[in-house]
């Protein structure tokens, strides 16, 4: 058959010369290579103790943010749920009572806010859709669990820690 390219190269296997047949020089070379690796830095990272830094555009677990006064930013508009391609977010809205003024920023708030972490694909569309800057995917890796129901994260796991009053 005509060769399709001009890159054809005929390999000639030469018979081994004396030094090669002795096997020992090659052995020494091999030993030198392995011992050089003995002094190299290990590639291993001791995981639970040492954690690699995530990239700046890393998207992890969601967190529902509070404003500078410690009030929840979310107003339960439902845009995040609407934008979610995996339909992982559900929420129930409620009206803020006068005595809850310190807890929620707007008159409407999310009484229930649930994200199914098994459905979530961590695309980040919810944080892009949010008009109140209330949701960000800035958390760690979502931990593993045994039951499906335990992957539905409610407000207890999602909302940021309240601000500590000085």
């Amino acid at each position: 058959m005509e060769p399709l390219t001009s890159k054809k190269k005929i390999l000639i296997q030469k018979p081994l010369n004396f030094a090669e047949r002795m096997y020992l020089p090659a052995l020494g070379k091999g030993l030198a290579i392995t011992i050089s690796h003995f002094f190299k830095k290990e590639a291993t990272i001791r995981y639970p103790e040492v954690q690699r830094e995530m990239s700046i555009n890393w998207r992890g677990m969601h967190s529902l943010k509070r404003d500078e006064n410690g009030k929840e930013r979310c107003t339960a508009c439902g845009l995040c749920a609407l934008s979610c391609p995996a339909e992982a977010i559900t929420m129930i809205a409620a009206e803020r009572k006068p005595e809850e003024k310190d807890l929620y920023r707007e008159e409407k708030y999310a009484a229930v806010y649930e994200i199914n972490m098994l459905r979530c694909i961590f695309c980040g569309l919810c944080e892009e859709a949010c008009p109140k800057e209330a949701i960000y995917l800035d958390g760690p890796i979502v931990p593993s669990d045994y039951l499906r129901k335990d992957f539905i994260y409610g407000k207890d796991k999602l909302v940021e820690e309240p601000l500590v009053k000085k």
Binding site: T34, I35, H37, F38, K40, K41, E42, A43, T44, R46
Partner: peptide, 13 residues
């Protein structure tokens, strides 16, 4: 340990 070091690993620790 030697195996690990020769292969750029840590070995049992």
């Amino acid at each position: 340990k030697v195996a690990a070091f020769l292969q750029d690993r840590l070995g049992p620790d």
